[in-house]
């Protein structure tokens, strides 16, 4: 809790309403939400070192208070299989960020370097999100990722805090729920792990109401017994 409040204080002191990816992961970790191993590195050497510790392949992402949309700034490199890949990716990300800053006319802070994370195995993509509704307060959203959320808007909501029953209902009531039962010979997905994440996110937001928006997108869910991972998390806090 205290750690979380400090992260929010820090962000606000820097004039940010979003938390950095490592901070978001720190918050999630403090609530025991499953995430791939991660680290940060401010030099190419350090990046290589940390990547080896995590285990290749890895993902590198720019870590800067000035960049919220990392892909737009060329700040994301995935599936880096060798030390050489990591080193090259680090340099490219730094150059891209600098260029992005020049184009936008901002002096991008590069001192934090990059965020490094295990390149998680692909699972069934789901999204768990939070929004703060002016009338009803915090609500949690669940849906399948990709076209299900983008095009079909096949998502469902519950107000926070949720009961476990609410979480189970959400997973059952989206239109594409059958996909989680396993299709085309796949084994059923680990929905217990999803319920667990949903409940932990609910607790996290309930205890930290300054979170006004949250996207755990994508979250990968694997076959039964193999759990789920929040691969990318974005947290927006109130000003």
């Amino acid at each position: 809790m205290k750690e979380v409040k400090k992260i929010f204080e820090n962000a606000r002191a820097e004039g940010r309403v979003f938390v950095l990816e490592n901070e978001a992961k720190d918050i999630m970790r403090s609530y025991d939400i499953p995430i791939p191993p991660y680290a940060t590195a401010s030099t190419a050497d350090e990046a290589v070192e940390k990547a080896k510790q995590i285990g290749l392949p890895v993902v590198l992402k720019i870590l800067s208070k000035d960049i919220l949309h990392k892909s737009d700034a060329g700040g994301v490199k995935i599936n880096l299989k060798t030390e050489d890949d990591v080193r090259k990716a680090f340099e490219e990300i730094m150059q891209n960020a600098k260029k992005y800053g020049e184009e936008k006319g901002i002096d991008v802070d590069l001192s934090r370097g990059v965020f490094i994370s295990d390149f998680a195995d692909m699972g069934t993509e789901v999204i768990i999100g939070v929004t703060k509704d002016p009338q009803f307060g915090h609500a949690l959203m669940f849906g399948l990722g990709g076209i299900f959320v983008e095009i079909l808007k096949d998502v469902t909501f519950r107000l926070i805090p949720l009961t476990e029953n609410d979480a189970r209902e959400m997973i059952r009531e989206i239109k594409a729920a059958k996909i989680l039962d396993g299709i085309r010979g796949e084994k059923p997905r680990d929905t217990d792990a999803l319920v667990d994440i949903i409940m932990k996110v609910s607790k996290m937001v309930n205890e930290n109401p300054e979170i006004i928006e949250l996207d755990c997108n994508p979250t990968f869910v694997y076959e039964q017994g193999k759990g789920a991972l929040v691969v990318d998390a974005r947290i927006i806090i109130s000003e």
């Binding site: 999100g129 929004t131 909501f157």
Partner: peptide, 21 residues
Amino acid sequence: ASSHTGSLAGSDKVADAAYKQ
């Protein structure tokens, strides 16, 4: 709303969920 979740929400969907819950 600026996030993905926020843009999908809209008060009516949240109201719907609240009523159900």
